[in-house]
Design a protein around this nucleic acid. Structure first.
Lengths: 97, 97, 97, 97
DNA sequence: ACCGTGGTTAGCTTTC
DNA sequence: GAAAGCTAACCACGGT
């Protein structure tokens, strides 16, 4: 395996003149770019959320309380999901399915 | 402080029959819903990213290395951003703007 | 500050001949030792827990289900705690306290 | 599989009136309680450790560095342990034990 | 404006 | 090899 997928890792992002034959280098770059794009979107969403909290705060709400509420909401969702999984587990345990 | 913004916090998300007059309750709910929506999108993006790593792994790349590369990329971006800020600082310092 | 607290970090744990005057070195070592001790205890507890799961498994219980139950238990505890905090938050928000 | 060990899982921790005959239910509860107890102890130790780091920080040490040191210490221990295992392996290989 | 705290998120380890 | 749980780093927020 002379040309491993790892081959071009070292110049981790500046190589724009990569040999046309180096398929895996292109492939890797593609993966990394897609990830970077998504990371940026994620980061944008974080900013949006922050903005909403700021807006709420400026209209008189207490953000600490709001955050706690969000956490409780999330826990409810989580709990329901887990309880359903547990039920499935039971069913399979007693051979119902 | 008869009708504070905190007034309806306690039933933190199930109230669909809220009194039309309770403007702040509605307002709060709206904020929370918007946040929840964005959180879900964020979570979706995290899943997408995870999928890409999985795909990359299945085509033979080492994800641990990939993550390291991403971290380095990010640092580069950060650095560039900070350098630009520094440049702006210079410009304003010498009255160029 | 010629002799900073960081001074002896490099030989991070083998120095048993440290100069009697180097108080901060001694102090640091003491901290690290205490932490190490606690880490060991923690690790021991993790092992104990693992053993219990193993024992339960060997008597016919399904550990996956058990873990899920433990998680739900924990969530209940967490939720109660958070709800109480939220209540406190309300109280202070409406100036009850 | 009328009376499986799974039988009483659903009321995962509130059942205090369990039928005396349901041995496995009792057994399960016992396991879960023991685990919970240990988890609490573990959590307490984590808090203790956090406190020590806080104390160290307040006396001027850099906790990030301290954590790094702890990690190195642990690696040393690990390494030694592995080396000993290797030694054991040798010994049994040449029939010394 | 800075520090300290807490929460969130990501990486690593271990299990199945 | 995949999935889950645990641990540790990061970041953002609130308080001083």
């Amino acid at each position: 395996m002379a040309k491993t997928n790892m081959a071009r890792y070292e110049q981790y992002d500046q190589d724009t003149t990569q040999d046309a034959e180096n398929i895996s280098g292109k492939r890797l770059k593609s993966f990394l770019d897609r990830i970077e794009r998504l990371e940026e979107e994620k980061s944008g969403l974080s900013d949006d959320i922050k903005d909403i909290y700021a807006e709420a705060k400026s209209t008189g709400f207490d953000t600490k309380t709001m955050r706690k509420i969000m956490r409780l909401r999330k826990m409810d969702v989580e709990k329901r999901r887990e309880e359903e999984e547990l039920l499935e587990l039971y069913k399979s345990a007693i051979g119902l399915e």
